[in-house]
Measured scan of single mutants.
Amino acid sequence: MATKAVCVLKGDGPVQGIINFEQKESNGPVKVWGSIKGLTEGLHGFHVHEFGDNTAGCTSAGPHFNPLSRKHGGPKDEERHVGDLGNVTADKDGVADVSIEDSVISLSGDHCIIGRTLVVHEKADDLGKGGNEESTKTGNAGSRLACGVIGIAQ
Rank of each mutant, 00 (worst) to 15 (best):
D97F: 15
D110V: 14
I36F: 00
C112T: 14
G74N: 14
I100E: 03
I18T: 12
G52H: 03
H47N: 12
T89F: 05
A90F: 03
H47S: 05
K76M: 12
N27Y: 15
C112M: 11
S60F: 07
V6R: 12
S69V: 15
I19M: 07
G109L: 00
K123R: 14
V82G: 03
A141M: 07
L39Q: 05
E133Q: 09
Q16G: 08
S35M: 05
E101S: 12
C7G: 03
G86R: 03
G139R: 08
K24D: 08
G86K: 00
F65I: 06
A61D: 09
K129F: 09
H121C: 11
E133C: 08
V32L: 11
G83K: 15
K4V: 11
S135Q: 09
C58V: 14
S99A: 11
T136Q: 10
F46A: 03
G13D: 11
I100W: 08
G13L: 06
H49P: 04
G86T: 02
D93P: 01
F51I: 05
S60H: 08
N87W: 14
G74E: 13
D77P: 08
E79W: 08
P63E: 07
R80Y: 04
Q16D: 15
D125L: 08
K31M: 03
V6K: 15
G42V: 09
G131Q: 03
R80I: 04
K10V: 13
H49G: 05
G94K: 03
D77L: 13
L43W: 06
L9M: 12
G148E: 01
I100R: 06
E134C: 14
V88G: 03
K76A: 10
I36S: 02
A96W: 01
S108D: 12
P75W: 14
D77V: 10
T3G: 12
N66Q: 05
R70P: 04
W33Q: 14
S135E: 15
G128D: 02
H72N: 13
L145C: 08
P75Y: 11
G45F: 02
I113C: 04
L118H: 01
A146R: 02
T40V: 12
I114D: 00
S108M: 06
G94M: 04
V104F: 08
K10T: 14
